[in-house]
Amino acid sequence: MARHVLLIEDEPNIAAAISFILSRDGWQVTTLAEGRTALARLRADRPDLLIVDLMLPGVGGLEIVQALRADPGLATLPVMMLTAKGQSRDRAAAEAAGVNLFMAKPFSNAEIVASARALVAGP
């Protein structure tokens, strides 16, 4: 069974790139361009991994992570956060919110694929 990832990213080109490389690696990829419907989507689809951008229109990445960590059904979902800001303050805030992996843009494709696999495999 294909592993399922939900990708929330508002830059269409970046979403296209990640979607392309993960699909090629055998993932089933669902993309969202904004954060408002994220939780409903997560509860309905039950993906194996969430990749979310920090800066999103409407509801931001941190808010989504905080909300899903509070939800018993989603508390253990592995989360990778992407950001173009890459400052240490943002990284600390993301980890406090319960992000498993913080990834700065631009990233290498190989790194994304490897990290995604590692997060799903579990510790």
Binding site: I14, I18, A104, K105, P106, F107
Partner: peptide, 9 residues
């Protein structure tokens, strides 16, 4: 970084 990301990927 945002356009850079797409370009690199």
């Amino acid at each position: 970084r945002t356009p850079m990301t797409s370009i690199r990927a």
